[in-house]
Each structure stands twice: as structure tokens, then as C-alpha cells.
Amino acid sequence: MSRRLSLCLSTKLDQLERIYDAVDELGESEEWPPGMVYQVKLVLEELGVNIVTHGHANDPDQEFEIVLDSDSDALTIELRDEGQAFNPLTDSPEPDIESGLDDRPVGGLGIYLVRTMMDELSYRREDNKNILTIVKRKDNG
């Protein structure tokens, strides 16, 4: 069981549908464990929305790439974009998940969900591109 899928997306939020469809299809054909399809959609949405709204400041004429590599043990994801440099491992603050309703900051949770749900994340900036590699192992819910 092994399959690779590449998506070249324009920097518009309507592209999310294409991501969801691709993840549904790959998850089904590669027999991902229950819950993994949801997590992968969420991770790609959070990061994709970040690239569109922050990395490219909603300029709809740019592009970014997602490559999904699914094998028997794990899914490896690579995201490449030419937006503003952003390392989700260091450039996103730890969110406040403890304080009461009134003191909770609005937002800041997306990257935290990504880091929590995936097993490995690594970032590099190369040729003016953000390149983020993510691993999600199949045995880890």
C-alpha cells in the first residue's frame, strides 16, 4: 500500500474543497485508521488558510503546493509556499488553553492543533520558499 498525490493550489480559500476531496480519496484508498482523515484535513486546512491569509496576505494570484505520500506505516506531507517566511515550530506562540472564558485569547489554536495531532514537523526556508514536512504515523490514532 503506497500512493503519492500532488496538489498545486491557488491562494484562495475555495481551494479547501480540493484539499478535502483529495484527503478523502487518499484516506479511503490507503485505508487510514479512523479519525486520521479528519486530522489530516484539519492540519492542511489550518496551514493552507495560514498560507493564504498571512503568508500571501490574501493575494489570490499566488500558488502553493501540497504533496501527500502515504505508505503502509505513515503519511508524509510536504507543503511548499513562496509566502512570507513562517516557521510554525517557532513563530507561533503557545496558546493559552487553561484560562477562563473571559481571558481566553481569540485564535492562535490552529498551529497548536497541527503540532498536537501530527507526529513530526520540520521546517526549512529554501530558495525563498517555506518548506514544511509533516509525518503522521498510522498507528497513532
Binding site: 479528519y38 484535513k41 484539519l42 486546512e45 489550518e46 488558510v49 481569540v106 485564535g107 489554536l109 490552529g110 492543533l113
Partner: peptide, 9 residues
């Protein structure tokens, strides 16, 4: 079927 951080906000 689905909610992400945008919905949590």
C-alpha cells in the same frame, strides 16, 4: 461533520 480553529473562534 467538521470544525477547525476558525469555528472554535
Amino acid at each position: 461533520s467538521y470544525i477547525s480553529s476558525a469555528g472554535l473562534r
